[in-house]
Computed example of a mutant assay.
Amino acid sequence: MYVLHVEKLNKTFKGGLFEKDRHVLQDVSFHLPEGQTTGFVGSNGAGKTTTIKCIFDFIRPDSGKIHFFGTPLNSQSKTRIGYLPERPYLYEFLTGMEFLKLHWNLCYGLSTKDFVERAHEALKKVDLFEARDRRLRTYSKGMLQRAGIAQAILTRPDLLILDEPMSGLDPDGRAMVKDILHEEQKRGVTLFFSSHLLQDMEELCSRLVVVNKGKILYEGGLPDFMSEFQSLEKAFQVLKNREAKNV
């Protein structure tokens, strides 16, 4: 079963008076098998964040089909998805617990009586339990990133989508995030996270989706990718050469 299926996604941003249109996504297609971890990798500006925003309908694609759990995105499927954007905005006047409560209340059909247990569980996982009653404006950049991850895992989602989850974290913070993702893997969650660093993928992923300049260059197993290309830079060059020959 495919937890997420993306088919022929296209997005163009119109240029200004003296600017050309920007074709940001071109026939982007991939799928996420249930229970597996897929890395979405590409250089900065490759189209990763735009793809994720289109998946969630934050911006409207020009064309393409997107299905979660076999159906288009709806209120029921949203409750099964955890999401962390690339640059999360957290309301700085709220405490850690209040921020999670706000997110919980926005999720349709969740029982109020379960909130405190789930919130404490999430905050302990990201090592923010002791700071739960502090206002977010007193958090460091790394603490804010971890608070965002706590929000993403709060509802124990079946699908977890993280856009650059290691961004802004020190080595200890990165290790903590990887430990959290390993725990989610053991729980059977389908993981999809983006990064421009192949090293992040090697430790966590069984599959890769490689994007460059809005086009999917590779989708498949990580071991096959590594045995053929060894590095992301080499992969981009080889795959672009192949693409040029097919034009």
Results as ranks from 00 to 15, higher is better:
Ile153Ser: 07
Leu154Asn: 03
Thr155Pro: 00
Arg156Tyr: 10
Arg156Asn: 14
Asp158Trp: 05
Asp158Met: 12
Leu159Val: 12
Leu159Gln: 09
Leu159His: 09
Leu160Ala: 10
Asp163Gln: 04
Glu164Ala: 07
Glu164Thr: 10
Pro165Trp: 06
Pro165Thr: 14
Gly168Asn: 05
Gly168Gln: 12
Leu169Tyr: 00
Leu169Thr: 05
Pro171Thr: 02
Pro171Lys: 00
Gly173Asn: 11
Arg174Ile: 13
Met176Trp: 03
Val177Trp: 03
Lys178Met: 10
Lys178Asn: 07
Lys178Tyr: 05
Asp179His: 14
Leu181Met: 13
Glu183Leu: 11
Glu184Gln: 15
Gln185Tyr: 08
Lys186Gln: 14
Arg187Val: 05
Gly188Asn: 09
Gly188Leu: 01
Val189Tyr: 07
Val189Asp: 02
Thr190Trp: 03
Thr190Gly: 05
Thr190Cys: 07
Leu191Ser: 06
Phe192Ser: 03
Phe193Glu: 04
Asp200Met: 01
Met201Asn: 09
Met201Ser: 08
Glu202Asp: 10
Glu203Pro: 01
Leu204Ala: 08
Leu204Arg: 08
Ser206Pro: 05
Ser206Lys: 13
Val210Ser: 11
Val210Met: 12
Val211Ala: 13
Val211Ser: 12
Asn212Thr: 02
Lys213Asn: 12
Lys213Pro: 01
Lys215Phe: 01
Ile216Met: 13
Ile216Arg: 04
Leu217Ala: 04
Leu217Lys: 08
Tyr218Ile: 05
Tyr218Arg: 09
